[in-house]
Design a protein around this nucleic acid. Structure first.
Lengths: 201, 201
DNA sequence: TTATTTAACTTAACACTGTTAAGTATACTA
DNA sequence: TAGTATACTTAACAGTGTTAAGTTAAATAA
């Protein structure tokens, strides 16, 4: 009964082909500028074939973003953590988050800016990968609170403050590349350092 | 020679009519979902008339955003400032910024998220209103630095850190309304307070 | 082996999009 | 009164997301 499995494997392969064609086009030309026909051309199938694998264009965007979130989550989880210095670990995590956004700016925007516009409200539901990304950040923060390094006791709020800071600086740097920013690394470090110092104080 | 002036006035009136029809539709239905024909229908002119007043759809978006920035700038500049307490003034400014974003979430996103996607790089050039908004923030920060309340000497970086914080929390609250946020006012206050405390430390 | 069902994919079409070139009608100028 | 400039419209182009119907090839059943 290997035939069915081969067929399933082939189906999964085409799904992946569509997905990576879509990602490449979305990233290079922008979600709105990419048509289903363009994606279809790239993979050399008719446009309607895509609808056999994805409900519609938004579903395609959604799947691309899921991959991005997984990639981000993996990047964060593979960080070398310093058990004895929870603040240093948080610092590294914040840096890694921003750097991920700047390394894949269009993927980051697709996930955290474009998608929310089309999937109102959805995106960070319970059990979702997006939620896991935040959970990671919260755990890093939580350890600092547990060790009584941070004054603030409310872990939720503290995590959300940290997220605001890194999300904010990431998006500003991506969206306004011509603004006379301070040197990048300095700005990012200052944002993270300021937030951490503020939480200690 | 009052005829020419009347005609100019009428032209300006129609321009404003187009602009406010566009804003209303953009805000309620999203930039992408609004067609030139929809706008034209609303003002009861043919679609092509719009092109006599605006170069294209992006130009229309641009003009809508200019108005938003002016509105934001006015809001900030009309704040009651406490000459003797520059930190309190900065606090109020940060709060006002976020509250503006949450009061007009779609206008804020149009200006700070959608527009940069279509006007790559442009948006904060010298002399622009966007630049003036940041200049305002910087001045508030600058006063704190001048009075040696903030440790950090670099006014540019300090201003950008503040902007990152307020921009970040504003966008997160708008884009992920279903996320289990801490109570709104508390989160906003904590973001601003943390940033200020971090800059003092 | 042959007939039938199922799966994968395509063709053609619908109602819509931003934008432009050409046309019209009105108001102003000479 | 004739000519010109201004304001606006009509018609069209090439493209959009999406669906219903049609086709072809492979798997199953007789």
């Amino acid at each position: 009964m290997g035939i069915k499995e081969r067929r399933a494997r082939e189906k999964e392969q085409l799904r992946q082909q569509i997905l990576s064609a879509a990602r490449e086009l979305f990233v290079n030309e922008g979600y709105e500028s990419v048509s289903m026909r363009k994606i279809a051309n790239k993979i050399e199938y008719s446009p309607t074939t895509i609808y056999l694998y994805f409900k519609d264009k938004v579903d395609l965007l959604d799947s691309v973003c899921q991959e991005t979130l997984l990639h981000l989550l993996n990047t964060l989880e593979h960080l070398k953590k310093d058990k004895n210095d929870s603040v240093e670990t948080l610092r590294k995590s914040g840096r890694a988050y921003v750097e991920f956004g700047l390394k894949y700016p269009q993927d980051y925007k697709l996930t955290f800016v474009v998608r929310p516009q089309f999937q109102k409200g959805l995106g960070l539901q319970e059990g979702s990968i997006g939620e896991k990304v935040f959970n990671y950040l919260r755990e890093m923060v939580s350890e600092c609170v547990r060790q009584k390094i941070f004054r603030q006791v409310d872990v939720e709020t503290t995590g959300q403050v940290m997220w605001s800071a890194v999300h904010g600086v990431t998006l500003l740097l991506i969206d306004f590349p011509d603004f006379p920013w301070t040197e990048r690394d300095k700005l990012i470090d200052t944002v993270i350092e300021t937030t951490i110092a503020g939480l200690k104080a």
